[in-house]
Design a binder for these strands. Sequence first.
DNA 1: CGTAGATTTCAGGAAGTTCTGAAAAGCCGG
DNA 2: CCGGCTTTTCAGAACTTCCTGAAATCTACG
Lengths: 187, 187
Amino acid sequence: MNLPPLVQAFVLHFGEMGSRWGINRTVGQIYALLYVSPRPLCADDIVEALGVSRSNVSMGLRELQAWNLVLPRHIPDDRRDHFTTPEDVWQILRVLAEERKKREVDPTLSVLRELLMQTPGSEPERHAQARMAEMHGLIERLTNWYEEVKRLETERLAALLELGSKVTRLLDAKDRVVDFVRGRKEV
Amino acid sequence: MNLPPLVQAFVLHFGEMGSRWGINRTVGQIYALLYVSPRPLCADDIVEALGVSRSNVSMGLRELQAWNLVLPRHIPDDRRDHFTTPEDVWQILRVLAEERKKREVDPTLSVLRELLMQTPGSEPERHAQARMAEMHGLIERLTNWYEEVKRLETERLAALLELGSKVTRLLDAKDRVVDFVRGRKEV
DNA sequence: CGTAGATTTCAGGAAGTTCTGAAAAGCCGG
DNA sequence: CCGGCTTTTCAGAACTTCCTGAAATCTACG
């Protein structure tokens, strides 16, 4: 591996975290490298920088493309494919959330739906199904929320985050106003 | 494996998803089984139900305890330890979020902080550090939001989810009111 | 204490994944 | 359609993780 120390530390960390994130070391390193790189890199650049085999890089890039985490970029007068990550970290977040949902949540949701359609044949099955319904309900709320929020443009998403739990205070305020108005009508 | 079909399907699914969630098959199955079970189970019950070795169950339970995902429950007149999952799925969600953050986000955050303290020695390093700063900023916003939201009791959390992106409309309304009031003052 | 029941630890085999070099397949200008 | 450059595929080596049975340890009661 042949990189400035700051970059190397970052790349190595992503490699190690890779396994916790369900991607392998090389894929993590490639991503980290592309992320901090000032210009798009081609496979050979990556081989050079990380000191892994050419074919490993090829498979890694393939996987990152499947995740929509890297973008192909054409460099004039160079036949080799080059890759970058999106500039905007919020955009990266969106892609990441979408892909993880697709892989980690959606399959479970569909299995749950299927199992909830069936008729339980015994008391333990009835209980199990009730528990599945609870889980299904929770996941569905979360994904509905996510579907709404993901459409927000960055600006508003940031504002929403900034607000945090204070939102509920805002909600309370609204409720008080509504109550107040109702009260006046009823009087 | 010796389970009613509904339960079996659920357990098998969790086993398969296990690998995507960074836990192994057996751990996933044990969790699923405890989750749908109407009463706490002991290790032998699990061995019986899943058809895996006793020691495997022991290690699985150990890991689930490390994740705070199962609770030991004492059964009168039975020396064996029994385990359940929390009743409340919202509670489960909280624990899950907390543990995943601890394992998947916090280490990166601390590495980023460290690297941002260093002085870049070259132009590529300067660029890399700027990118790290962007990533750090985003993660910090997200975790701050999370820290606030996780304190909400279930009721309010649910309300917040229900609201979804409409929050921003509420925000807009507030802004309009503020602008209006300001306008009147300035007139 | 001693002992029966319960749990944990651990070495090593099974299963799964990651990585490599070599060979095959694509692609493009001439 | 040839020849050089690039990318992909793939079999198997290297490595990692998972799982088991056997042995060690723990624990509570008589």
